[in-house]
Simulated assay, not measured.
Amino acid sequence: MTNMAKPKTAVVINRHAGTVRSMGEEAVRKLVADALGEEASLALLEGPAIEDHIKTLLRDGVARVIVGGGDGTVASAAGLVAGSPVALGILPLGTMNLMAQTIGMAPAPAAALAQLRDAGVKQVDAASANGRLFLHHVSFGLQPRMVRIRERMGYSSRFTKMLAAARATVAVLLNPRSERLGLRIGGEPIELRTPGLIISNNVYENAMMLKQSRLDEGVLGIYALEPMTLAAYLRLAFDVLRGRWRDNVNVTERRSSTVQLTRHRRLRRDSRSIKATVDGELTLFDLPLVIESRPAALKLLVPREGGL
């Protein structure tokens, strides 16, 4: 019996991703086959089966794993691939696709697959929160509240998810809250009262989208908001849209390779956890929470034209 060579490229797609729901699975299968040919395997999976399949691929010695889904699916896959010789590719099929935008992936699946077919490999940084790897950011306050409200509303497609997100944003801004956070940034203790805190893998550009211009500086961007009125939030939104958010007086930026979140001294002593979103996925972290840069942790497929 002749041994069949294992494919060098494997494509793993979250079948619940918004684009898959909109296009249909058969259309997605055809796109992948047309772009990558028979040498690439394809699996459309959901939930824990995605991670299980990627673990099997790593044991089988695949060279490239292309993951189709949103930022949460991509970050989960990156956590498995990081530190290995396997290169990770991102097929943007989610709602925001922040990491895909950062590295210059085309939003249309067919165009993104063409980029991945000819992509180069770049060693990039990741970051981790209590050991959980992320690629774009971890957020506290505003975004976890919005995601929690959005999930309660429910949605059935990418469009309805975006609509639910817009309604959740309005609900949060009409009922603003601030969190008391204790931070240790590079060894310096800081106490904050803030409605929103974002810690990013490398620093953000002062541009319309919150994306990084580089992923190889081995640093975290730390962005805290001041408590604001609704009018001030609207002004900040306008500054973000015109790509001038760094000039807004209600945004404080710091940089460090490590950040530790601790219980604020004014919080009750049984406050031992904090809600957060990790690349858009809602989670609960135990305190203290250690967030650190992981330089050159991941091999990433990036477009040869217009990428990082």
Rank of each mutant, 00 (worst) to 15 (best):
L298I: 09
H264C: 00
A207T: 13
A33L: 11
D52Y: 10
R269P: 02
Q101Y: 06
R254V: 08
P92T: 05
V147C: 07
H264D: 00
L98I: 05
S157G: 02
L215G: 06
V32G: 11
P48C: 12
G68H: 10
P195S: 04
S156P: 02
K8F: 13
A166W: 01
N250L: 04
V121N: 15
M1N: 12
M4C: 12
D60I: 09
A78H: 03
A119R: 13
P288N: 03
L298Q: 10
P109S: 14
T19Q: 14
A33S: 08
A232L: 01
K161T: 00
T102P: 00
V249D: 00
T160S: 03
A231R: 12
D118T: 13
E281H: 04
Q123L: 13
P295V: 01
S178R: 01
V251P: 11
S213W: 05
R132I: 08
A231N: 02
Q143R: 08
E51V: 10
T277C: 14
K211E: 12
L44C: 11
T283A: 11
D71F: 01
T169V: 08
K30G: 14
A75V: 05
R145P: 06
R21I: 03
L284I: 08
L236H: 00
N250V: 02
A77E: 10
G182E: 02
G154W: 05
L287W: 00
V74F: 04
R242F: 05
V203A: 04
L45K: 06
R148W: 04
A87P: 04
T102R: 01
G68T: 13
A237D: 03
D118Q: 14
R294P: 07
Y233T: 00
M4S: 15
L183C: 07
V302C: 15
P189L: 03
A111K: 15
Y204L: 14
D216K: 12
T229W: 04
R235K: 11
V12S: 07
A224W: 07
T160P: 01
G186I: 07
I149Q: 09
R268W: 00
V121E: 15
A77M: 10
L173Q: 05
I274L: 04
Y223T: 08
P227G: 00
R59G: 14
A100C: 10
I54Q: 09
T102Y: 01
L284F: 01
N14I: 04
W245D: 06
F134I: 05
G61D: 07
T277F: 03
R21L: 06
T19Y: 08
M162T: 04
I13D: 06
V62A: 12
K8N: 14
A100L: 07
S257C: 02
L220R: 04
S178L: 00
L135Q: 04
S293F: 02
L183E: 08
D247K: 09
A49T: 11
A224G: 14
E226S: 03
L300N: 15
E38N: 11
T229K: 11
L88K: 14
L225Y: 11
V11L: 13
L181Q: 02
A126C: 14
R268G: 03
I185F: 07
F159K: 01
M208Y: 15
L298R: 09
A114V: 09
V147N: 05
A63H: 14
L210S: 12
E217G: 10
K299Y: 08
A296Y: 12
G186H: 09
P189I: 06
A164N: 02
R294C: 03
S76M: 10
A127Y: 02
S139H: 09
Y233D: 04
A77N: 12
I198G: 07
R263L: 00
I185C: 08
